[in-house]
Design a protein around this nucleic acid. Structure first.
Length: 491
DNA sequence: AAGCTATAG
DNA sequence: ATTTCTATAGCTT
């Protein structure tokens, strides 16, 4: 199971079972270990038993979906650890934004669900998101948080001395921003808009601040859209140094192109191994970061500004008969040096702190494209059968009581409820329903998949109320839910 | 297409 | 804990 499997899996559920765009985000806990994942995180869809429009749901309906999503997430984490040995962390909510944020509360090897209410004056969404520093919100990064912070404070925020990246002691929370006088999409647009800014950035930021995010889960791309190599330097100011770095970076880039863009189909009529390019980049880019000159007071302002030039990538770099060294020399002479002269016309006086060379504009070669946007449908279904079969077998072979114990449960049982974070998880002890709690939650089971054929058909409310927590649970998930209770009540 | 800004991990 | 390196999206020209 890797990331694309998870994405595929969820996509198939989406197609077959009318899933809505509710999300969980799964993050592998140790991204440095192993390469089974293409990415460190993935958002998944969640089953929506009532077929509701995601924008028009009561908190009761939402609650069911979130609990089911939690069960599914628990199973996937469990499966991932069992099969691959990777632990992971999951956040469950109604959008990528909320799922990502809530997922960070119980790390590593945990999962957290943001529970209803999602609307009204006591909305957990508001309570939850308001507590975050503005810069912690995904897609509000260094520059935007700076601008917003300064406006809310009415002055330039004081920063920790010596800190270059971010870090202010004057924390401005999302709540502070939201409640600032005259705060509006228009004001944010004024603050954040301008050259280079995304169109409608004010409105988008306003949505994020309110916890609204309608961004979609995107397909993992098979091909990277660019490959680049860079290095930073204390000082790079002579042509011979540049040449030396060109050779190092160029060699590295060509090697990367060969490993990432070359496919070796061993099949060949003569039995000789064939290698062919699965994508050809069309553009070469050279960027540098010139070291900024000293200020009047002798300090040097930090700029991260890069400048670049790009042009057509010569075709000879795709030659597999010539050595990389030869190709690099040719590339330097025909492309990189001319580009460098365009970037730095002066023969001296420059002082570079960074050089980057990269290739972009990938064009997939023929025979490599698969219909329907790069996905093999037949294979997909075959894989699905396998996945479903595995789960079913597990169900039959392992008695439910045993199923819940192996591997996934221990950390969940052991966890102490942590206070003060405004997040609610499905928890048996959440008796009053209204108060906020924080703890990990749900055990899972594969019952979710067991009778997958009936999921949609039994819309006509075959669910029952859970005796313990009162949540309405569809029948197919009740066994899983009860196991969840038997776990968490034993704490 | 090229140049650039901003962001994430 | 911070910096470096890689990659992406989307703007402007």
């Amino acid at each position: 199971m890797d990331c694309s499997d998870i994405v595929d899996f969820n996509r198939q559920l989406l197609n077959r079972h009318d899933l809505q765009h509710s999300f969980f985000q799964l993050v592998r806990d140790d991204p440095t270990q192993g390469f089974e994942f293409d990415a460190t995180s993935v958002s998944g869809h969640m089953y929506n038993p009532a077929g509701l429009d995601s924008s028009d749901q009561s908190d009761d309906e939402l609650r069911i979906r979130l609990v089911l999503g939690s069960h599914l997430a628990q199973h996937m984490r469990h499966k991932l650890e069992e099969d691959k040995g990777y632990t992971s962390t999951v956040g469950i909510s109604t959008s990528k934004l909320l799922a990502k944020l809530v997922g960070s509360l119980n790390k590593p090897k945990g999962q957290t669900t943001l529970m209803p209410p999602y609307s009204g004056t006591t909305s957990n969404v508001t309570t939850f998101i308001d507590a975050h520093d503005i810069g912690k919100i995904p897609n509000i990064g260094f520059k935007m948080s700076h601008k917003i912070r300064d406006h809310v404070l009415g002055r330039t925020a004081a920063y920790d001395t010596g800190l270059i990246y971010g870090g202010t002691k004057e924390s401005v929370t999302v709540g502070d921003v939201r409640c600032t006088n005259n705060m509006s999409p228009e004001l944010l647009e004024k603050l954040l808009g301008g050259a280079g800014a995304e169109r409608g950035i004010g409105a988008k930021a306003w949505q994020l601040i309110k916890g609204i995010d309608d961004s979609e889960v995107k397909e993992i791309r098979k091909m990277p859209s660019q490959i680049s190599i860079e290095d930073s330097y204390i000082r790079l100011d002579t042509m011979s140094q540049i040449m030396k770095e060109f050779r190092i970076l160029g060699t590295s880039l060509l090697k990367r192109m060969r490993t990432d863009l070359l496919e070796s189909d061993e099949v060949d009529s003569t039995g000789i191994e064939q290698a062919r390019w699965i994508a050809l980049p069309k553009t070469l880019r050279l960027s540098t970061r010139p070291r900024p000159p000293l200020n009047a007071d002798g300090t040097r302002s930090r700029t991260f500004q890069r400048i670049s030039r790009s042009g057509p990538l010569p075709n000879f770099v795709f030659s597999l008969s010539e050595s990389i060294d030869t190709l690099v020399e040719k590339l330097i002479q025909t492309a990189l040096l001319p580009m460098f002269r365009r970037l730095h016309p002066e023969s001296h006086g420059w002082n570079l702190s960074l050089m980057n060379i990269g290739v972009t504009n990938m064009v997939e070669t023929a025979s490599n494209d698969r219909s329907g946007g790069g996905r093999d449908i037949g294979n997909m279904f075959k894989r699905q059968e396998e996945v479903l079969k595995e789960w079913k077998i597990e169900d039959r072979d392992v008695p439910p009581d045993v199923l819940e114990i192996h591997q996934c449960g221990e950390d969940l049982q052991a966890r102490e409820p942590v206070s003060e974070t405004p997040v609610v998880c499905p928890q048996p002890s959440a008796g009053s329903g209204a108060e906020l709690q924080n703890s990990a939650g749900e055990t899972f089971t594969s019952d979710l998949v067991e009778d997958e054929g009936e999921w949609i058909e039994d819309d006509d409310e075959t669910g029952s109320l859970c005796q313990t927590c009162g949540t309405s649970i569809p029948d197919f998930a009740m066994a899983a839910h009860e196991r969840f209770h038997s776990h968490t009540t034993s704490v």
